[in-house]
Design a protein around this nucleic acid. Structure first.
Lengths: 394, 394
DNA sequence: CGGATAAAGTTAAGGAGCCTTACTAGAGGC
DNA sequence: GCCTCTAGTAAGGCTCCTTAACTTTATCCG
């Protein structure tokens, strides 16, 4: 649910101005994909003529979006002048508001992190949380040395779903006070940066798709298992959000517990691991991590608890597989650290449950998935914005 | 899985020729949406100038894609000449291969059915089935009075999934012999019409989206319950197929039956209704329809069987809702006739299962959903093809 | 070392397609 | 009959792309 929705206008007339703009965009995208290229090379790759490439590139350079970055001698012939996108033409902000940690990063248009901070989130009220977010973000921007006005877009990841009309985050059970209306608007005005808010699992999926193990997947599901249970789906490179942004809320999948129907979230999340470990005879102050560690040592109760967790995850994967047909399912979140233990039971159980067995892999980005997803999303919009203002600015 | 995949080339240079083509396309699409319009009106709506509209429309008319259809006098001022797309510029073929029925229709570019046939499918072998399809399709084309060469595209709906590489339909358990390789190729060459093959539930979803109750939905799921169990998903107007075309194969959803884990398909489809009716005390030669009829008469065993079926459908809907977040779920297929009985138990059960409760509605198209979906899909491609060959033809 | 070759990039000419402006055509109101 | 208003056409100009020829600069090779 983007807070600043870019209205899609699918049917616009193609006047000459639009044509030029489209070709400049084509060249810029190509340059980003290649890193750096000469004008002759761009002409070959895009199918545009050499004069057109020269002139379009000149106007991109005048707008500050590209610049010369050196030369390259071909096998023989005149040395080529290489052009590359200017990473400093704009910056993007990524924020991950998690239950335990707040993470903020500023990236340039190349996607390179120029500043970052990870803070413990001890806020127990909405005011404290927004203050923490605003001050941390300001700090990070200051540390980056970037003019705040050059931070053209930001994306915030959080549990729950941002409701555009009510201007508040819904279903964010694990963040006290975070459901109040107007909080995001407050942060936005305090920072002076356009902000979107997205679900954390969705962003983690995008992060893992862009920078991690999901690259190139046609349909990719990221299952986030931690304090809660969520799933993000990336279809053909784009986030799949459903009708109201609630797609992937697999915590609500039907699940028949021991006594009564309950929510799958309560059966799969970290607490459930601890609970079943207790049931299998473990004692003391337990955390999910402790149970997994004990299982690694061979503690029989812990091993059984992990086994059970694996079966339940398999159930989750099977449901997602039957509905979505992903070619890759990535397990991340708190259990991400323990995927080595879970992979075998998950796969075994899956074999019994369904003939649809997508590839299953552990997260590569771990704790950074949400932040990197936020950054990737913000970057996308930031690139658009910087390109759009190109004409206005000159 | 389209058999003739239109390769997407997202990054093409926008030369002037492409620009003209895009504007002609824009005008044609607008005309289809409006039905008929004058050049001045088109200029106002598209933002193109009047001379441009005149010239583009003239070249569309020369290609036979549009023609004058009359005049309309405005409040005051000169009478306007109205243009409209020529429906006879091409035709599309839709085929629904079902277990009990084979349905074939030919439509013009307006989407009007110009000929149709519904035949009992008694084929028990692949040769008989392909023969039936080919002869029926030929017959329908002949009846339509259309030159077979003008049937530019066709879409076939069938249970299962067409595997492009193996050139055969997979997972089509209920059609004997239909899984053999090369059958579709045979039909294609016999008919001389380019054919795509799609899953029947997917097409039914598209049909219901295009002509039925799903119109305008952002994310729409069609659940087909009959001999088998399937689901089609339409997201933002486009079919959601998953990585390998298996999205919506909810027959494979995990389900814990009375003794052992089984496939949800066996618990929800028509046979399951009969089976539970038997368990609740009904006797004799039963069909799903008979059970529903008995329930309408108040037969207690039948009522309980229907109740149970409703609960299982609710389970299915809940799973789809948690993963996809649809704003509308349509129930169709064999049980479509009996949705009146099922809607209440489904909704009640759903309330207990999950807070995500999409709107649930019965199919409006009934038995025609698959055929109309095939027709709609074929029409889409046919319009593209006719537009593309516009230049080549002249 | 000088010419052949090859690639990068520029210049010049030409053309396609759109827009603006100015016009004609036709229909009603006063 | 004249004014006004809308539909549509004609002419000219502008933008931007392409082709083709040319310049520049590098390597290769005798």
């Amino acid at each position: 649910m983007p807070a600043s929705d870019v209205a899609e206008q699918p049917e616009q007339p193609w006047s000459r101005r639009r044509l030029r703009s489209t070709n400049e965009r084509l060249l810029l995208d190509r340059l980003r994909a290649l890193g750096a290229a000469s004008r002759a090379q761009l002409a070959r790759e895009t199918g545009l003529s050499k004069p057109t490439v020269s002139s379009a590139l000149a106007s991109l350079a005048a707008a500050g979006l590209v610049h010369e970055v050196g030369t390259q001698a071909p096998e023989r012939g005149r040395t080529a002048v290489l052009y590359a996108p200017d990473p400093a033409a704009g910056y993007a902000l990524g924020v991950d508001i998690g239950r335990g940690w707040l993470r903020v990063a500023v990236v340039d248009l190349d996607g390179t992190v120029v500043a970052r901070a990870d803070m413990r989130n001890r806020a127990r009220a909405s005011a404290a949380l927004t203050d923490l977010v605003v001050s941390t973000a300001r700090q990070v921007i200051a540390n980056s040395g970037v003019d705040p006005a050059e931070v053209v877009h930001g994306v915030v990841g959080t549990p729950g779903v941002y409701d555009e009309r009510q201007r508040r985050v819904r279903y964010a059970m694990h963040l006290p006070g975070w459901g109040r209306a107007g909080l995001v608007d407050g942060i936005r005005t305090e920072l002076g940066v356009p902000l979107e808010v997205h679900n954390d699992a969705n962003l983690a999926a995008l992060g893992e798709y862009t920078y991690g193990v999901g690259a190139g997947s046609r349909l990719f599901a990221y299952i986030l298992i931690g304090t809660g249970l969520g799933m993000g789906v990336v279809s053909e490179g784009r986030l799949f959000t459903g009708a109201r942004g609630l797609a992937g809320e697999i915590g609500f999948l039907p699940w028949h517990g021991r006594q009564k129907p309950e929510r799958l979230e309560d059966a799969v999340s970290g607490v459930a691991v601890v609970e079943s470990a207790r049931r299998f005879g473990m004692h003391g102050q337990l955390t999910a991590k402790a149970v997994f560690d004990a299982a690694r040592q061979g503690h029989p109760g812990a091993v059984r608890a992990v086994e059970l967790e694996g079966e339940r995850i398999a159930h989750t994967v099977a449901a997602a597989a039957a509905v979505l047909d992903p070619d890759l399912v990535v397990l991340g979140g708190g259990v991400g650290h323990s995927v080595d233990l879970l992979l075998r039971p998950v796969r075994e159980r899956l074999r019994a449950l369904t003939p649809l067995r997508p590839r299953i892999a552990p997260s590569r980005l771990g704790e950074d998935a949400v932040l990197l997803g936020a950054v990737a999303t913000a970057l996308d919009t930031a690139r658009d914005l910087v390109f759009e203002r190109r004409t206005a600015g000159t």
